[in-house]
C-alpha cells in the first residue's frame, strides 16, 4: 500500500481557500453594486464604481502615485541591495553568514518600529532638523514626512532586506570562474560586470524586482505612516475608504483595480524581458 502523503495538503488547502476566496468574492461582488455611503449599497449590478474610479481625477492620481512610488522604491532597492548582495555572496570567510543573519533579523523586525525610527530622525522636530538648524545650515525645518520622497524611503526601508536576500542567492548561482575567465581574457572589472554578471543576474533581478514592486504596491504601514495623511497610495486610500468613509463597495472597487494593475504590470514586464536578447541561453 502506498502512503498518500499528499492528502496532508487538503486541510490547509481548504482552510486557505475558504478564507481567501470567500472574503475576496464578497469584496469583488460588492464592488459591482453602487455605493450609497455609510455602509449601504445598491441592489442592482452596476459598473458605476468603476466608472467613477476611472473618471475621477483623485482616484487616477492615487493609482499613478502608487505605481510611481512603488517603481521608484523598487529601482532604488535594487540599486542599493545589489552591491551588498554581491559583496556578501563573494565573501569566503564566515563574515558573510554573520552579515546575512543580521540582514534577516533586521528585515523581519516589524515595519512599524522601523518607520518610527525614520520619524524620530527625519521629522520636522527630529534629530536631523535640530542638528541642521542648530548649526545654522538651514533656517527652516524640512521634513520628509508627508512627502512622496518620504513614502519612497519608507517603502525602500521595508523592502531592502528582501532585496538583498533575493539577490544574494542570484549572485551565488554565478560561478566565480566566469568572472575570472572574463578578467583573464581582457575585461576590466566594470566591463566584466557589464558583460557577464549583469546579464547572468538579469532574470534574478527581474524576479526580485517584481517581488519588491508587488510588496510596495500592497504596502500599507510604511506608506500610511510616512505619507502622514498627505500622500495617498491605493492601500492607504482603501483603508481610509473602509474605516473613515464606510464605503465598502467603493473600497472593493479600489482593491480590484489594485489587484488587476499589479497583475497587468507583472505580466507585461515578463513578456518584455522574454523578448530581450540577453535572456536567451540563461532562461533556456
Amino acid at each position: 500500500m502506498t502512503v498518500r502523503w499528499d492528502l496532508l495538503l487538503i486541510p490547509s488547502f481548504l482552510f486557505t481557500f475558504i478564507l481567501l476566496s470567500v472574503s475576496q468574492t464578497l469584496f469583488l461582488e460588492g464592488s459591482f453594486y453602487k455605493d450609497l455611503g455609510l455602509g449601504r449599497t445598491g441592489d442592482t449590478l452596476d459598473l458605476v464604481n468603476y466608472v467613477r474610479v476611472f473618471t475621477d481625477g483623485f482616484y487616477l492620481t492615487t493609482l499613478w502615485i502608487t505605481v510611481k512610488v512603488s517603481a521608484l522604491a523598487t529601482i532604488c532597492t535594487l540599486v542599493f541591495s545589489f552591491p551588498v548582495a554581491y559583496v556578501i555572496a563573494r565573501m569566503r570567510s564566515s563574515w558573510g553568514m554573520i552579515l546575512l543573519s543580521g540582514i534577516v533579523v533586521s528585515t523581519f523586525i516589524t515595519i512599524v518600529i522601523k518607520v518610527f525610527g525614520i520619524i524620530i530622525i527625519f521629522s520636522a522636530d527630529g534629530w536631523l532638523n535640530q542638528f541642521l538648524m542648530s548649526t545654522g545650515i538651514t533656517t527652516e525645518p524640512y521634513s520628509i514626512i508627508g512627502t512622496q520622497e518620504g513614502v519612497v524611503i519608507g517603502l525602500m526601508y521595508f523592502t531592502l532586506g528582501f532585496g538583498v536576500l533575493t539577490l544574494y542567492s542570484v549572485v551565488q548561482t554565478i560561478p566565480t570562474s566566469l568572472e575570472e575567465a572574463a578578467e583573464i581574457h581582457g575585461a576590466s572589472r566594470p566591463r566584466m560586470f557589464r558583460r557577464v554578471i549583469l546579464p547572468l543576474a538579469m532574470p534574478g533581478l527581474v524576479a526580485g524586482g517584481l517581488m519588491v514592486f508587488n510588496m510596495c504596491m500592497g504596502a500599507f504601514t510604511s506608506a500610511a505612516l510616512l505619507g502622514g495623511g498627505k500622500v495617498f497610495t491605493l492601500p492607504v486610500l482603501i483603508q481610509r475608504t473602509i474605516m473613515m468613509e464606510v464605503k465598502y463597495s467603493m473600497a472593493g472597487t479600489l482593491a480590484a483595480v489594485l489587484l488587476v494593475a499589479v497583475i497587468l504590470i507583472n505580466v507585461l514586464s515578463i513578456i518584455l524581458i522574454r523578448r530581450m536578447h540577453f535572456a536567451r541561453g540563461v532562461l533556456a
Binding site: S177, E180, A181, I184, H185, G186, P199, L200, F278, G281
Partner: peptide, 29 residues
C-alpha cells in the same frame, strides 16, 4: 592585474559564458 597580462586560460569547469553563443565566447578576448 590579470587583464593586463596577455594570457589565456582554460578552467576546470570550462567557465564558458552561458549567455553568449560559441562565437561570442571565442571572440570574447
Amino acid at each position: 592585474p590579470p587583464q593586463k597580462r596577455g594570457i589565456g586560460m582554460v578552467f576546470q569547469d570550462y567557465a564558458l559564458f552561458p549567455h553568449m553563443t560559441i562565437e561570442e565566447n571565442i571572440g570574447f578576448a
